[in-house]
């Protein structure tokens, strides 16, 4: 499903012509199978978020290739990446990344709107999903009127609305308290079991890491350990 081959990435910082090159990832090889939950752990600055951003297509690798569903996504241009993301990937972010001027309903509906789905169909699907995440009473609330846990559920609903086979999550519990974190992790496991969604989760939290079928650790830009959950 997701296959990363010899992936390297460097950041260039400083003024043009006087840039300093900082290597972040070096020769990463990784494979994530259908229906797996894979968690990637590592210390701050280890390169785990960069790995997720590369797989999401937000940045381009310096070297190496990424295959998702047998598509070599490293050859995609921006437009093709946009279509591919819309139809194949769901995203959950640490800081939820909801559009603040839109209601919870409009935030979730947005992906359907971008896909060109008719208004009536959008309404039916979005309402159904709000019931699934238990937020049907909060559809017309703005993000600022929701708690952190509720915002993350809205974010998950947005990720699920187009039934993507893969969800990429970057520190999904980073902004949540302990109880809400447990609820969210249970929900992720439920989605994985019931719908067979593949999860690639970046975290520095041990509790989150443990929900993975496999835990991968990145140290200083290199994949050093792969541990199978018991």
């Amino acid at each position: 499903m997701i296959e990363v081959k010899g992936l390297s990435h460097q950041f260039k910082i400083g003024k043009k012509g006087k840039e300093t090159i900082i290597p972040v990832l070096e020769g990463i090889n990784l494979k994530v199978d259908y229906g797996e939950i894979v968690t990637v752990v590592g210390r701050s600055g280890s390169g785990k978020s960069t790995l997720l951003n590369l797989i999401s297509g937000y940045i381009q690798p310096t070297e190496g290739e990424i295959f998702i569903d047998d598509h070599n996504v490293t050859s995609f241009n921006e437009s093709k990446w946009a279509d591919f993301r819309l139809h194949n990937l769901g995203f959950i972010f640490q800081s939820f990344q909801l559009i603040l001027s839109m209601t919870a309903f409009e935030n979730v509906e947005l992906a359907l709107t971008l896909k060109g789905v008719h208004e009536k169909e959008r309404k039916t699907q979005t309402e159904k999903l709000f019931k699934k995440v238990g937020l049907e009473k909060f559809m017309d609330h703005y993000p600022s009127e929701l708690s952190g846990g509720q915002q993350q559920r809205v974010s998950i609903a947005r990720a699920l609305i187009l039934n993507p086979p893969i969800i990429l999550a970057d520190e999904p519990t980073g902004s949540l308290d302990s109880d809400t974190e447990d609820e969210l992790l249970d929900f992720i496991k439920q989605l994985n079991h019931e719908m067979g969604i593949t999860f690639l989760i970046i975290t520095h939290d041990e509790k989150v890491a443990k929900i993975g079928d496999r835990i991968i650790e990145i140290v200083d830009g290199a994949l050093v350990e792969e541990e199978y959950a018991s």
């Binding site: 591919f84 995203f91 947005r158």
Partner: peptide
């Protein structure tokens, strides 16, 4: 810009 970023992140085409 933040809204545009979010839209692009979830799959909005630049031409849109």
């Amino acid at each position: 810009a933040p809204d545009i970023g979010i839209m692009k992140a979830i799959g909005a085409n630049p031409s849109t």
